[in-house]
């Protein structure tokens, strides 16, 4: 009874639900924008790595390695608290999207690269022999075949970005987690935190299940 009142206090939950929903909206905004930034950036990096001159390729490899190694929380704090010292002052939202987008682009670039490499070399050769430009080769021939391969890992990455949006609460972003901790303080009861946790699970569990199904489906296609 005591436990129920502490962790699943219905009146407290109902009270905090409106702010939790506002927080969810912010979480979704940060997540969706970061995912889109990461997708676009990753695609550009992966294709540039294929066609750009050697120096650019080296820089892209370095970028991918650095941003896959740096802890996201550290990057976020650097962007928000350190960049102002060199005159770059980003809003909490822009800071969160910048950090999440930079890291997601690095992972996405690797995913796209693996997808492009999985397309048989004969497809590149047939395109070249027909006189297709690099752009048409990519858009019409290679990427449509690579996309099947990359959808499960890209979905996985999107789940990770969505989860990592919770870190934005450290730069004072009123996201789902931040709203929950504030509501908890206000009510002197942890139920809003439990509510937030449930909302995260309800949001992401369908995507997790989707990835599992996609992977199973694609593996079946392979046999």
């Amino acid at each position: 009874m005591n436990i129920l009142n502490t962790f699943f206090n219905v009146p407290v939950l109902l009270d905090s639900l409106p702010v939790l929903m506002m927080g969810l909206l912010v979480t979704l905004e940060i997540g969706v924008v970061s995912i889109l930034v990461g997708l676009a950036g990753g695609l550009v990096l992966a294709v540039a790595r294929l066609y750009a001159p050697g120096l650019v390729r080296t820089l892209i490899v370095a970028y991918v390695n650095v941003f896959r190694s740096i802890p996201l929380l550290v990057l976020l704090i650097v962007v928000y608290y350190a960049l102002p010292f060199v005159g770059i002052r980003l809003s909490p939202f822009a800071s969160a999207v910048t950090a999440l987008g930079l890291v997601s682009a690095a992972y996405t670039a690797e995913i796209f690269r693996a997808g492009i490499e999985a397309v048989p070399n004969g497809q590149f050769e047939a395109s070249a022999a027909l006189g297709l430009s690099n752009r048409h080769t990519m858009v019409d021939v290679i990427l449509p075949q690579a996309i099947r391969i990359v959808i499960p890992p890209l979905t996985n990455n999107s789940i990770n970005v969505m989860k990592d949006t919770a870190l934005a609460s450290v730069v004072a972003m009123p996201d789902l987690l931040k709203q929950a901790t504030q509501a908890q303080a206000l009510a002197a009861n942890p139920t809003p935190l439990i509510g937030a946790a449930l909302i995260y699970v309800l949001l992401l569990c369908p995507m997790v299940l989707l990835v599992a199904r996609l992977e199973k489906h694609l593996n079946r296609g392979k046999r």
């Binding site: 497809q123 047939a126 006189g131 021939v141």
Partner: peptide, 19 residues
């Protein structure tokens, strides 16, 4: 590109676009 537009090629493994 001009040369390749004038020179067609047929491969041992067909290399058709499967999609």
């Amino acid at each position: 590109a001009r040369v390749r537009a004038e020179v067609g090629m047929v491969f041992q493994s067909f290399n058709l676009f499967p999609h």
